[in-house]
Computed example of a mutant assay.
Amino acid sequence: MTNTDNTFGAAFAGFAASSLCLGVLSTQAYSYFKRYPLDKRFYKWLVAGLWLLEVGDQCLIAHAVYTYLVSNWGVVTILLAPPVWSLVLQIMVGVVTGTIVKLNYAVRVWRFSKENIPVTGLILLLTFGELGVACWYTVKSFQLDSLANIGSEKNLGTLSLALGMATDVVIAAALCWFLRGLRTGHGKDDSVVNSLIIYAISTGGLTSVISFTTLLLYNFMPDNFIFMAFYFVLSKVYANSFLAALNTRRVSRGRGTDAETTTMPTFLMVGKVTQRTIQLDPEAHAQSPISPGKSDQKSSLSPMQSHTYAEAW
């Protein structure tokens, strides 16, 4: 007898969790357009596109869950029928979102590494490899005679999830490695770099853990839908991490509202320049009325550190 808790129940739990993630994503998208009205048009379209993709992804999840839990309420034999089209198509939409986000992080690696071709090329190879395998998995899933046989495509599904997890690890490791080169020895500068390293580890670690958990569940428990619950939220975690990076920028060149003092450094801030500026005391050229005998060549040197954060976009 089919256990409805780890099949229909797990799918419903995944739908609820992904709905919550979509709510967070919508809030971040609203915050982005409100705080950065002068940002580049390309990234405005990118944010809008990611949000629309995830809204579409959530609609597909909702349709699949509604089909299994409402339209076929109590009909357990629905699991023996071919998978509903929306459930299969959702796989592809989720991978597209992850691919877009990973390509943007690949650009970050490219710039932080001073155009390192091997590392950036490896990230691109893994990213497009995952996309290709996911496309083939989607095609094969449409050909399934029964949803209960979804485990028959375990090899393709495992490879796709493994490639995604490997990409996250490589991106996080590459960013941490190349960010080390931005350290200058100044406490304030190094604290920014350390914050970026922590952000890289936490973001890559979170998506890697979700991918790894989905992979394990899919391999060891393919007969239930618990792995689907984790996969439902995966693409939204990618999108949220990207928008979080956009919304925590310190903007420059008049873009956005940088009057806020609580913004944190992100990967969108590169080109950090630390320099010491020598300023001449304007009063040093004038003879002191109290000490007229002092030389008019007197000057004072005041070291000043200036930190310029330029956007990488």
Score class of each variant (00 low, 15 high):
M1E: 11
N6Y: 14
A10K: 00
A10D: 05
G14P: 00
G14R: 00
A16G: 01
A16R: 04
S18N: 12
S18P: 06
S18F: 02
C21L: 15
T27Y: 09
Q28M: 10
Y30V: 15
S31L: 11
S31V: 15
R35P: 01
Y36E: 06
Y36K: 07
F42M: 09
W45D: 03
V47S: 11
A48Q: 08
L53F: 10
L53W: 02
E54A: 00
V55Q: 03
D57Y: 13
D57E: 09
D57R: 01
C59I: 12
L60G: 01
I61S: 05
H63D: 10
Y68P: 00
S71P: 05
G74S: 03
V75G: 03
T77E: 15
L79E: 09
S86Q: 04
L89N: 08
Q90F: 08
M92N: 10
G94W: 00
G98F: 02
I100M: 15
K102R: 14
Y105E: 07
A106N: 03
R108E: 06
W110S: 10
F112V: 02
E115C: 04
N116M: 03
V119N: 02
V119M: 14
G121W: 04
G121H: 06
G121K: 03
L122Q: 00
L124K: 03
E130Y: 02
E130G: 13
G132M: 12
V133Y: 06
V133Q: 04
V133K: 08
A134T: 09
W136T: 14
V139G: 05
K140D: 03
Q143S: 12
N149Y: 10
I150G: 06
S152R: 11
S152W: 15
L159T: 07
L161K: 00
A162H: 00
M165G: 09
V170F: 03
V170T: 10
C176N: 15
C176A: 12
C176L: 06
L182P: 00
G185P: 05
K188C: 05
D190Q: 04
V192A: 03
L196H: 08
Y199T: 07
I201S: 09
I201M: 12
S202V: 14
G204E: 08
G204Q: 05
L206G: 01
S208T: 11
S211I: 02
F212E: 03
L217F: 11
Y218E: 13
M221C: 13
N224Q: 01
N224D: 13
N224C: 06
I226W: 03
A229P: 09
A229E: 04
V233W: 01
L234T: 01
S235N: 01
S235V: 02
A239S: 11
S241F: 08
L246I: 15
N247I: 07
T248C: 13
R253V: 14
G254E: 05
E260F: 15
T263E: 05
M264T: 15
M264H: 12
P265F: 10
F267S: 10
L268P: 05
M269C: 13
K272E: 13
T274H: 09
A284E: 12
A286Y: 10
P289S: 05
P289Q: 04
K294H: 05
S295A: 04
Q305W: 15
Y309V: 09
Y309R: 14
A310K: 07
A310M: 12
E311M: 15
